[in-house]
């Protein structure tokens, strides 16, 4: 799998673990606001855990603009290797 595919699968697993409600089928253009149980704090947990999984540091300026699943994946793809 490519990095985006791997990141997508990892993110989906993380969200399943964090959200207490059953998840809909996720796609890159799924709105984060449409994911049941995904509040802001769980979103941040997911991003932080995704950073660790891929050993990157995302540009934190992107955090306030996350709106879709693809935004998270793009932020991770552009992340710097962890120092």
């Amino acid at each position: 799998m490519t990095l985006p595919e791997t990141a997508f699968a990892t993110l989906a697993d993380l969200l399943r673990g964090l959200c207490e409600d059953p998840l809909p089928d996720l796609a890159p253009d799924t709105l984060l606001a449409d994911i049941p149980g995904l509040d802001s704090i769980r979103l941040l947990e997911a991003v932080a855990l995704l950073e660790e999984a891929f050993e990157v540091e995302i540009d934190t300026a992107a955090l306030d603009g996350l709106r879709r699943v693809a935004d998270i994946l793009a932020a991770v793809a552009k992340g710097r290797p962890q120092g």
Binding site: I41, E45, A48, T60, A61, L63
Partner: peptide
């Protein structure tokens, strides 16, 4: 474990926001 990961992310964000 999850909370500490998030705290490290938020620490970085706060310091970046102050710097910007």
């Amino acid at each position: 474990r999850r909370g500490c990961s998030m705290l490290r992310l938020l620490r970085r964000k706060l310091l970046a926001e102050i710097a910007s």
